[in-house]
Design a protein around this nucleic acid. Structure first.
Length: 433
RNA sequence: UGGGGCGUGGUCCAACCGGUAGGACACCGCACUGUUAAUGCGGAUGGUGUAGGUUCGAAUCCUACCGCCCCAGCCA
């Protein structure tokens, strides 16, 4: 008897199989029971009658939601069944029955956000949440595929770091051994610059932490970032890499996770156009577009949520805005040789108001300029000694960017809030469960 | 941190100008051989975030605190 996953039952039409999973819901109609089982790969309706299978009927009748079960029966296509296939149950083994006095708390009806987040460890069992996490996994896999195909080597950055890379106000401080202090990384960028000088083209993928007091649908205090960095690369190279990477991620999810996209209710036609090349506009042009649309943006302003939404809603795919004023960007950003008031950086804005999914650009290669910028930013020079070494020993032009995984997945899934796209979201005022 | 909103049975909500806190779902029982968050009938349990104040009387009005949501800033 083959043990199969629910996602594969279509290949077993007419055959008897065993499924291992949980009871998701149970409907009754007279001497018929219609249980719905889930196993993490999908859901399937079962059917059992008292007359034909009295033992299985009795075992299933009154069974509590989320009890774990091993089900044996014949798969057959039936238009009346949700999903097109159902299993005609011949035997059922209850692995653990959820006690009647402590029923499963998450019902099929609506719940509030706080209630669900307090039970996130159970909420992820619901089909929509499971589908989102499967899409996330596919996005990660596609990202690795693409970086590998472009000759980039995965190198890991440390999570304990001695200092900030963009300023100290948003760092989580931790006590290290004895009286030492360390901080949780807010970006692997400085380290990936070092490994780029060692290996040429590299990227890092890992968790990053920001103690920002941000309470919006686009922020987490712990999120995952993919950061490529390449020696001898320039701004243009990174914009090409960024659009190629995002195109590949989106198209891979569309191709390999159609069922999950349907489960989350995503309009897939909006993802179909997401193919390189993406539109590019300069910061100057962006300001002009905003002013034409009646926005009050002036040259020198950074863009907020409203501005990003106006810009991104102009296009059917992500848009890249490049050459921002130097004053708006991090200390390590290379100024444009032709217009030093502009930095050779770019942001990629996702459509439909999902905001910035990529930020990056060319780094300062010159030792003296980097020291000057460090001092202007009031950063502790001694903590950056190793970083300055990179400009002392064979410094070359180099560039990179950071891709926010959760924002990218939230956009692909069309979720209202970023908290749904990571298994256990860490937010301002929430570290449980 | 600022602005706005909200805290009522296990869950989701209602209760107008202060006057007996109610419904749906969930749960239990019965009926039903094709249900689609099944349906119909019946039943039991159980609640006003916390602390004060005003009042004959507070879920409702006032004050403080606690918690949550949304928006803004910052960012990915």
């Amino acid at each position: 008897m083959p043990v199969v996953s629910i996602q594969d039952v279509g290949q077993y039409d007419g055959q008897e199989v065993t499924l291992r999973g949980w009871l998701y819901n149970l409907r009754e109609s007279g001497k018929l029971l219609f249980p719905i089982f889930r196993d993490g790969t999908g859901t399937i309706q079962g059917v059992v009658s008292l007359k034909d299978q009295p033992a299985a009927f009795e075992a299933l009748r009154g069974l509590t939601q989320e009890s774990s079960v091993i089900v044996t029966g014949r798969i057959h296509a039936d238009k009346r069944a949700p999903g097109g296939f159902e299993i005609q149950i011949t035997a059922i083994e209850v692995v653990q029955r959820v006690p009647d006095e402590t029923p499963y708390p998450i019902q099929l009806k609506e719940h509030g956000v706080d209630f669900l987040l307090d039970r996130r460890h159970l909420w992820i069992r619901t089909p929509r949440q499971a589908a989102i996490l499967r899409i996330r996994a596919q996005a990660v896999r596609a990202a690795h595929e693409y970086m590998d195909s472009q000759g980039y080597i995965l190198t890991e950055a440390p999570i304990f770091t001695p200092a900030a890379c963009e300023g100290t106000t948003t760092l989580f401080e931790v006590q290290y051994i004895d009286d030492q202090k360390a901080y949780l990384t807010q970006s692997g960028q400085l380290y990936v610059e070092a490994t780029a000088m060692a290996l040429g083209k590299v990227y890092t993928f890992g968790p990053t932490f920001r103690a920002e007091k941000s309470k919006t649908r686009r922020h987490l205090t712990e999120f995952w970032m993919l950061e490529p960095e390449a020696a001898y690369a320039h701004l243009e190279d990174m914009m090409v890499l960024g659009e190629g990477l995002v195109s590949h991620i989106v198209q891979s999810v569309v191709k390999n996770r159609p069922r999950e996209l349907e489960t989350v209710g995503r309009d897939v036609t909006k993802l179909a156009n997401v193919k390189a090349p993406f539109p590019r506009i300069t910061y100057d042009e962006a300001v002009k577009i905003l002013q034409e649309r009646g926005n009050s943006a002036k040259w020198g302003d950074d863009f907020g949520g409203d501005e990003e939404t106006i810009l991104s809603s102009t296009y059917d795919r992500p848009v890249m805005v490049h050459r921002y004023p130097t004053a708006l960007k991090a200390f390590y950003m290379q100024p444009d040789a032709l217009r030093p008031e502009l930095a050779l950086g770019f942001d990629m804005l996702a459509p439909e108001g999902y905001g910035e999914i990529i930020g990056g650009g060319e780094r300062i290669a010159d030792y003296d300029l980097l020291v000057k910028r460090l001092r202007e930013s009031n950063l502790p020079e001694e903590a950056f000694g190793w970083y300055l070494d990179l400009r002392r020993y064979g410094s070359v032009p180099h560039a990179g960017f950071g891709l926010g995984l959760e924002r990218t997945v939230a956009w692909i899934c069309g979720t209202e809030h970023i908290r749904e796209v990571i298994p256990f979201p860490r937010m301002l005022y929430r570290v449980y469960p």
